[in-house]
Computed example of a mutant assay.
Amino acid sequence: MNGKKRNVGGKSPKPDKVCHPVMVRFTDEEYARFLAMYEQSGVYAKAVFIKARVFGAEFRVLKIDKTLVDYYTKLASLHAQFRAVGVNYNQTVKELKSRFSEKKAMALLYRLEKQTVELVALSRQILALTNEFQTQWLPKLT
């Protein structure tokens, strides 16, 4: 072989192999507290969670409130529907002018205008609720 290593295949060894296991025993109460902390952390493995606690890594708890996510999603979809109404508004006005007499078109446009005023008020409420939601519930980026 002239001093060369044969290629045997397989996985190459890790440079910093983990080979020193440590055992911890908990009482029932301690284990319940440990599991609660582990689940709140969102870490994928208990061993990783324990190592992070032992070596003083920052402990973060990420909680996702499903109701807030649903609220924000519905608010965003409502805003998207409102924009769609705005797109259709222009087409509606063109069709009213081309399909009806001027008197009938003006009467229908008057009703459409009243509905538009209500939509504008609703849009302002949507924006106010969105801003309030963002300031109250979303974390600040700093």
Rank of each mutant, 00 (worst) to 15 (best):
L62T: 14
Y44C: 04
V54Q: 07
S101F: 09
V54T: 13
L35M: 09
Q125A: 02
V18A: 12
K104A: 15
E30R: 01
G42K: 02
L119N: 15
V93R: 02
E95T: 15
M106Y: 14
L129H: 03
D65Q: 03
K46V: 13
H79N: 10
Y110W: 11
A45Y: 15
V48L: 13
F49M: 03
P139F: 00
S77T: 11
E118D: 03
E58K: 05
N2D: 07
K14E: 15
V69H: 09
D16G: 13
I50Q: 06
E95M: 15
G10K: 03
V54P: 00
N7H: 15
L62R: 13
Q115C: 09
E39K: 14
L35I: 06
K94A: 15
T27H: 08
K11I: 12
P13I: 08
P21K: 13
A45D: 13
G3F: 03
S123R: 01
P13F: 11
T142M: 05
Q134R: 07
M37I: 05
V85F: 10
K46L: 12
E102R: 15
F55S: 02
A76W: 12
G3D: 02
M23L: 07
K17M: 08
L138H: 07
Y72F: 01
W137I: 00
A47Q: 09
R33H: 05
P13N: 14
L96T: 11
S77K: 14
V18N: 07
L112P: 06
Y71C: 06
F82T: 09
K74W: 13
S123F: 07
R33M: 01
Q40N: 15
E132Y: 04
V18P: 00
Y72G: 09
